[in-house]
Design a protein around this nucleic acid. Structure first.
Lengths: 139, 139
DNA sequence: ACATTGTTGACCAAACTGGTCAACAACGAG
DNA sequence: CTCGTTGTTGACCAGTTTGGTCAACAATGT
């Protein structure tokens, strides 16, 4: 129930890309500056996103990074899975399996996880962008 | 978005207590055996729960530990907060505050956190017990 | 007085986090 | 071609957290 800064930074990076959707490649340096993410760290964050095919990268002089899908089609749970690795929630040890005779909370955590994931699945980059724009317009 | 084993173990311990609601003090040794939690570890888990007044402890020969409130009145978010310490979700660094001029994902994580917390607030120990009994009756 | 049980704090190895550095690979412009 | 730009990769590292143990102590019932 705690988000790693990997996820937080990564989401911010993606949010930046979502805001610039359609502009073509955005250099990592750019993202790093605007979202205050250490460049070398950002590089590591982007990597799995590129490999997963959610982001496309282009090297060279006018290279950079851009979303492959429109922001409305990228859901938060997907992003979290990619950045946090698989098994994003309860992973009870192996011992737990032994005491099935009596009561235990195994599947209970599955249930909780499932409900939380439903929340993540209902949030898209697009919705984050909109919410963000709403807030910045007020402030 | 990952649950520490502190939270998982702790919830299992509380679930055990919920199942035994009304039986009087349950020894830690008992809980540890039934829920496969290392006893010395469990002791540390129980501590904050006792201090928070959600659990009552009794020492001595027939001592043990018991819930103070009925399981239906103990919500998951409460348990998580107690076991995980405050700030159960996104805690973006201080640097983030500096780049408010352009876009950023600060409040976005607040939003996500809020939604997740709503889920935790809707789950009580009682509901976990019921779900658990349902599953074990089938299996 | 004694065994039982909870409380507390010190301690520890291992994993994870957040982050840096440096070498390398591909691409565009001149 | 070659040079600078930009992404890719992997090694590395200090600090924190996690998961867990041990031992001393405090309270309670018998």
């Amino acid at each position: 129930m705690k988000f790693s800064s990997k996820v937080r930074y990564g989401t911010r990076a993606l949010l930046e890309l979502a805001l610039r959707w359609g502009e073509g490649p955005v250099p990592l340096k750019d993202i790093a500056r605007r979202q205050q993410i250490p460049l070398p760290y950002l590089e590591h964050l982007i990597c799995p996103l590129v490999q997963a095919g959610i982001v496309k990268s282009a090297r060279g002089t006018r290279g950079g990074v851009m979303l492959l899908k429109p922001p409305g089609e990228i859901i938060l749970s997907e992003v979290i899975d990619l950045l946090e690795g698989p098994g994003n929630a309860a992973e009870y040890g192996d011992k737990a399996l032994e005491c099935r005779d009596y009561s235990a909370a195994y599947d209970v955590w599955d249930e909780v996880t499932e409900q939380v994931n439903r929340v993540f699945e209902s949030i898209t980059l697009q919705s984050l962008v909109e919410r963000q724009q709403l807030k910045s317009r007020v402030g």
